[in-house]
Simulated assay, not measured.
Amino acid sequence: MATSAECADERGQEGPIRCIFFSEFHHIAGPKITCQVPDNFVSKDIFDNVSVYIIPKAQLQRSTITVTLKEFKILGFPVRIDNKKYARNAFYFNLCFVCDAEARTVHYEPVVKKMSEFLIALEIENCFLSASGDKTRLAQMLQHVMLDLNMHKMCTLTEGTMTSHLKVVRQAPEPKPILDHQVPIFLEGREAFQSDQWDLTTQQVLPYIDGFNHVARIAAEADVENNLVKSCVQNLVYYGVVTLIPIFQYSNVYATTPKLKKLAEDVELQDKCVAYASKSLRQPAYLRDIYRMYASMTHGSSMRDLCQRLNPQNLRINERRLVQFGLIEGLIRRIYKYPIHIPSNSTEEGRTNPIYKYFTGAFNLDEICCCIGQSVAQIEEIVERDPNVVMLWK
């Protein structure tokens, strides 16, 4: 069993709420569950084993607490209301959501807290929780919340003159740091994006996001400091507005992934692909030609070789958008080149050219190009001249 305010397993999948229960501290009987839906989902034996975390010490009051058991996970927000009208001068309670043990629950934390605050207000206003042993109305409320949150991810609670709106907001993991050579691309059409909802720096950067400009180029063309551009792009990635793909060049090599099979089976994906990769919607490309181009992408065959062999222009295919769509949907992946300098009787150039510090196998050609401002062809020429430098493809 693990307990922590941040114990939720970030690697788990989001799952439904299995149970909601209300527990309180009885001045004679101690901690107990006084209402739960469905009934008896959490047994008395299990509750007794974890009750010290459900109704905890004062230091943990009003903190999100997660208790992970073998079968399920309990998420709560323990509360104490101080008032001399209560036995022991305080009323202790905890509203808890119960999910599967492996489920991700971090997105429920704000909901549990907000609903607890609603119950606090009801208790202070009219002793809604403590006045009677009859918890029928509370049970109806818990049932309503569980059904609506599971089905619609939102719920409205009304009791007397008080109303509270609950909503489950998916919390995406923090995006990885943005690199100079990465290319942001809109996941939906640019026309669906409302730029006036974003800050001024993001609005300045947006016109240069076209699926081909890498971050360093966007910074230069937008005349915005590089780290600010990275922050803007990272924010857009977090909210699912853009994703990141590699720089497109005809010297690039791509390879198919197992997801290409989905293109042969999913009609909706096929329609999206044809619309995205065709030169003109009036005369769309044939799916068989698009599929053949994807299937021809393999190690050792550059995009230039592929275009010379299959002539996508005659097939009404926009090869640049074809690659974009394949990368976004995971149908293909980029094969990167990593130069590695093997110490030997180093050439004079190896001792003097600062580019050699990048020939460690940790930097691909895209990264090196952005760092030193040279083209892929220039770097490959250096590699070709020096027998002590080898190229790793992966």
Results as ranks from 00 to 15, higher is better:
Ile218Met: 06
Val183Phe: 00
Thr256Arg: 11
Lys261Asn: 06
Pro284Gln: 09
Ala255Trp: 01
Ile185His: 04
Ser231Ile: 01
Leu200Trp: 12
Val267Thr: 11
Leu179Phe: 00
Asp180Arg: 12
Leu269Lys: 11
Pro246Gln: 11
Ile178Gly: 00
Leu287Arg: 09
Leu200Lys: 15
Ala172Lys: 14
Ser195Glu: 14
Glu225Phe: 08
Val274Leu: 12
Ala295Lys: 15
Val169Thr: 12
Gly189Asn: 15
Tyr254Asn: 03
Tyr239Arg: 13
Lys261Gly: 02
Leu200His: 12
Tyr238Cys: 00
Phe248Lys: 03
Ile245Ser: 01
Val242Ala: 03
His214Ser: 05
Gly211His: 09
Thr256Trp: 08
Asn227Ala: 02
Thr243Met: 09
Phe186Lys: 04
Asp223His: 12
Val169Ile: 15
Arg190Trp: 07
Leu263Glu: 05
Pro173Gly: 00
Val267Ile: 15
Met293His: 04
Cys232His: 01
Pro173Ile: 07
Leu166Phe: 01
Gln270Asn: 06
Tyr239Ser: 04
Glu268Val: 15
Val229Phe: 05
Arg288Asn: 09
Leu244Ala: 04
Val215Phe: 02
Gln270Gly: 05
Gln270Met: 14
Thr201Ala: 14
Leu179Glu: 15
Gln204Ser: 15
Leu179Ser: 11
Ala275Met: 13
Trp198Met: 06
Leu269Pro: 03
Val267Ser: 12
Ala222Gly: 02
Gln171Glu: 12
Ile290Trp: 05
Ser195Val: 14
Leu269Arg: 05
Leu260Ser: 08
Arg190Phe: 14
Leu263Thr: 02
Ala275Pro: 01
Lys261Thr: 10
Ala285His: 05
Ser278Thr: 04
Glu225Val: 10
Tyr250Trp: 11
Gly240Ile: 09
Ala255Val: 10
Thr257Glu: 07
Asn252Phe: 03
Arg170Asp: 07
Glu265Leu: 15
Asn226Tyr: 01
Asp271Lys: 15
Pro258Leu: 11
Val237His: 02
Glu174Ala: 13
Asp223Ile: 05
Tyr250Pro: 00
Cys273Phe: 15
Val274Met: 09
Ile185Trp: 02
Tyr254Arg: 09
Leu236Ile: 02
Val215Trp: 09
Asp223Asn: 13
Asp271Ser: 11
Val267Met: 09
Cys232Asn: 08
Lys259Trp: 05
Ile218Pro: 04
Lys262Val: 03
Tyr294Gln: 03
Asp196Phe: 10
Ala285Trp: 08
Pro173Asn: 00
Lys259His: 13
Leu281Ile: 14
Thr257Cys: 01
His165Glu: 10
Gln171His: 03
Pro246Met: 10
Arg190Glu: 13
Thr202Arg: 04
Ile178Lys: 05
Ser251Lys: 14
Asp271Gly: 06
Leu269Asp: 02
Pro177Ser: 03
Gln182Pro: 04
Val224Ser: 04
Pro184Lys: 11
Pro184Cys: 08
His214Asp: 10
Lys259Tyr: 08
Gly211Cys: 10
